[in-house]
Simulated assay, not measured.
Amino acid sequence: MSTTIMTTGMDTDTTTTLTDAALLRLTWLASPALPVGGFSYSEGLEAAVEAGLVRDEQSAGDWLVDQLHLALARGDLAVVAKVASDPQRAGEMDAWVRQTRETSEFRLQSEQMGKSLGDWAKSLGRAGVPAATQPKNTTYPVAYAIAAQGTPLRATLLAYAFGWSENMMQAAIKSVPLGQSAGQRILARLADEIPQAVAHALQAEPQAFTPMLAILSARHETQYSRLFRS
Rank of each mutant, 00 (worst) to 15 (best):
M93F: 05
S181T: 14
E105L: 00
H69G: 01
T12N: 06
A95W: 00
A147H: 01
E50F: 13
H220S: 07
D86A: 11
A30W: 10
D20A: 15
Q170L: 14
R101N: 10
G44K: 02
K122D: 15
T3V: 15
A172I: 08
Q180H: 11
T19P: 06
P135E: 02
K122Y: 01
R126W: 04
T4S: 12
A48R: 05
M6V: 14
G183R: 11
G37C: 03
R189F: 09
Q196V: 09
A182I: 10
Y224W: 07
T17E: 14
L216G: 03
A73I: 08
H220P: 04
S2H: 09
G75F: 14
A191L: 12
A47I: 02
Q149T: 11
M1T: 14
E50K: 13
F39Q: 09
F162N: 12
L29A: 13
A147Y: 01
I5T: 14
Y140A: 05
P195K: 07
Y140L: 12
I146H: 00
A172V: 11
D13K: 12
G128I: 09
S104K: 02
S181P: 00
A84I: 02
A145I: 10
Q180I: 11
Y144I: 01
M212L: 15
M6K: 11
R185P: 07
T100Y: 11
A73P: 02
K115W: 00
Q203T: 10
P135S: 02
A171I: 09
V54F: 09
L216D: 02
Q112K: 00
E46I: 05
V176N: 09
Y224Q: 14
D94V: 07
L34I: 14
F209M: 10
F228R: 02
D66C: 02
H220G: 11
Y224P: 05
I173R: 14
V65Q: 03
P195Y: 08
R126E: 06
S31N: 15
L153R: 04
P195I: 06
L77I: 07
G91D: 03
G163C: 09
P35S: 10
W63N: 08
L68N: 02
G52R: 11
L29Q: 13
A121P: 00
K136I: 15
K136C: 12
A84M: 00
E57F: 03
S85Q: 05
T27P: 02
A171F: 08
T100G: 03
M169P: 05
E221K: 01
S40F: 05
A81N: 02
S110P: 01
V65E: 08
E221S: 09
Q223A: 15
